[in-house]
């Protein structure tokens, strides 16, 4: 019984990791860009939501709605003015630029908000739970998982049923040929990164409501997110959700065995998958 509970909690935790990963997966899938600042952008967004909650006295969900357009603009500008200039065959320049951004963001947040732990207050929702008969689950983890499923469902709809999605897929497969068909890859990339920042806003909302955060927690979120993307396979969004769930279950099972093994178990699960299936479980695109 305790194991069933552990696995269910792990899958729900995986929902949070899938939210971290969805934005990364989108950007990585379309332009092969590894954004090493992704985790720090999530933390920075959580601080922004916190500021909106505290200054305007809004409900966190409304605050995220307020923050999202600003963060879309930030992502768009980041891609348009910085990252587009370093994309190319060589993976080193974009990697280094986002690494620079990561360190700059961490230290900027440290100066602005101090190293103290923060939390976005969500009222009674924080401790509410639902009895599902066999297991009892927290409302918040359930809501996180549902949001992850919804985000991935909507992203898939966008990818496969809209003109923008077609442009995303075409650019992902072959940017040069896509540009011959009248698509401007650079503006497609900018929209994609803006969209990724909207997903980051949702991830930040749950990160901030579920647990304490401080300026230093970004890199660990980035690693979980990346592990979920790689386990799932490049370009497969549902794969990313499954990847998140695998990391989540490995972590809760590891923690059940020994609380100190939680994070380690997640990483080991990732390494095992990578040894067995170097391209992930459900790869769609070819590198």
């Amino acid at each position: 019984m305790i194991w069933l509970d552990t696995v269910v909690q792990g899958v729900l935790l995986g929902g949070l990791y899938a939210l971290f990963a969805a934005g990364l997966s989108l950007v990585f899938g379309i332009m092969r860009l590894v954004n090493l600042a992704h985790g720090d952008l999530i933390v920075a967004s959580a601080f922004l939501i916190l500021i909106v909650v505290e200054t305007l006295g809004l409900n966190p969900f409304l605050a995220a709605l307020v923050a999202a357009p600003a963060l879309f603009a930030l992502g768009w500008a980041l891609q348009r003015f910085v990252l587009n200039r370093v994309l190319g065959k060589d993976i080193l320049p974009p990697l280094l630029v986002t690494f620079g951004l990561s360190v700059a963001l961490q230290n900027g947040m440290l100066e602005l908000f101090s190293a103290d732990s923060q939390r976005i207050a969500a009222g009674p929702l924080e401790s509410a739970s639902i009895d599902l008969g066999i297991v009892t689950v927290g409302t918040m983890p359930l809501l996180t998982f549902a949001s992850a499923v919804l985000v991935i469902f909507l992203l898939n709809r966008l990818f496969y049923s809209t003109a923008l999605g077609r442009a995303f897929r075409a650019t992902s497969d072959d940017a040069v040929t896509a540009s011959l068909m009248g698509i401007n890859p650079k503006s497609v990339f900018a929209i994609a990164t803006g969209l990724a920042m909207v997903i980051v806003t949702i991830a930040a909302l749950y990160l901030g409501m579920r647990a304490n955060f401080d300026p230093s927690v970004g890199p660990a979120r980035l690693i979980y997110a990346f592990e979920a993307v790689i386990i799932g396979g490049l370009g497969s969004l549902w794969g990313t959700l499954i990847g998140g769930a695998i990391i989540g279950v490995a972590q809760t099972v590891g923690a059940q065995l020994n609380p100190e093994w939680q994070i380690l178990a997640g990483h080991l699960a990732f390494l095992v998958v990578l040894i067995l299936r170097p391209r992930g479980l459900f790869p769609r695109a070819v590198d």
């Binding site: 370093v86 320049p93 630029v97 690494f99 620079g100 360190v103 230290n107 440290l110 100066e111």
Partner: peptide, 21 residues
Amino acid sequence: YGSWYLLALGLIAIAVMLLAP
């Protein structure tokens, strides 16, 4: 000035990558 110089370091690295790779 605390960790501002680390922020500056990150930004300089970005600037170097963009302007003088």
